[in-house]
């Protein structure tokens, strides 16, 4: 059986908010390394991979591998009943029909209990190779979100160019064009505001902004976001959590 308790329900709420517009139904795979999820969007352009490690939970107990097939809209409905700082316990039997969620507020001794019906989801798992990227850029997640939103007002795609001096996001649309450049800067006092570029070689790629705007819904998970780019491989966008991550992979546009 599975029994996993999060100190803060907000963690799961944010994870679900981050992926629910990309993926409708998916398996939460529970095993002795924690709870993992891997799913593609309907059009097979993007892939999300999530891992909440056992450290994220206290206690964490999972005797055998369990796949919890969940409709994310349903999960979100139930999670709306939880306060951000409620304790959240997930429980399931070994071959479960339902996932049991208990929200406990320490302050007023309120205990809320919900069951969500599970579904059988036949999901393909893709092997994601370890990649040495041409460029890895760490920047404030709010800044990335703002850039994607602003450029999406002009165009449906963005070109991202990473060089030693900085990272440039640019687009061209019917009404005109736009570009935002972040210079590499190391903010010692507020490290989360830094833009750090690790460069093997300069790289430029074009991506659909619709997906990037969607990924930015994970911004509340982390103050920083890491973009990893290489020619002709999917862009990796990673939001790190205290004990885990949400990673998005986006196939590049080709033939530009």
């Amino acid at each position: 059986m599975l029994e996993a308790r999060l100190e803060q329900a907000a963690v799961l709420k944010k994870v679900v908010d981050a992926i629910k517009d990309l993926v409708q139904d998916c398996n939460f795979d529970c095993n002795d390394s924690g709870i993992q999820l891997q799913a593609m969007d309907n059009s097979h352009v993007a892939l999300v991979a999530m891992h909440l490690k056992t450290d994220a939970f206290s206690p964490y107990r999972c005797d055998r591998n369990i796949a919890l097939g969940i409709n994310l809209a349903s999960l979100q409905k139930v999670l709306r009943a939880a306060q951000n700082d409620d304790l959240l316990t997930l429980k399931a039997e070994d071959a479960p029909d339902v996932l049991n969620l208990v929200f406990e507020s320490a302050e007023n001794d309120r205990i809320a209990e919900y069951d969500i019906k599970l579904m059988d989801i036949d999901q393909e798992h893709l092997g994601i190779p370890d990649t040495e990227y041409a460029a890895t850029v760490t920047m404030p997640s709010s800044e990335f979100q703002r850039i994607c939103r602003d450029l999406n007002a002009l165009s449906e795609s963005v070109s991202i160019e990473a060089a030693k001096e900085g990272i440039k996001f640019s687009c061209q649309g019917d009404i005109g064009s736009g570009a935002v450049t972040l210079r590499q800067n190391n903010n010692v006092e507020k490290p989360d505001l830094s833009t750090i570029i690790e460069l093997n070689e300069p790289v430029g790629l074009t991506f659909s902004l619709k997906y990037l705007v969607n990924f930015c819904k994970a911004s509340s998970l982390s103050n920083t976001v890491k973009l990893s780019l290489s020619a002709e491989v999917p862009l990796l966008i990673e939001y790190k959590m205290e004990s885990g991550y949400v990673r998005f992979y986006l196939a590049p546009k080709i033939g530009d």
Binding site: M40, S43, H44, V45, A46, L47, E124, H125, L126, G127, I128, P129, S157, T206, S208, V233, P234, Y249, L250, A251, P252, K253, I254, G255, D256
Partner: peptide, 14 residues
């Protein structure tokens, strides 16, 4: 511009 790539052409099925 450009044609959208498919993620499955980059990652192999397990």
């Amino acid at each position: 511009g450009g044609q959208q790539g498919n993620i499955m052409s980059f990652f192999q099925k397990k």
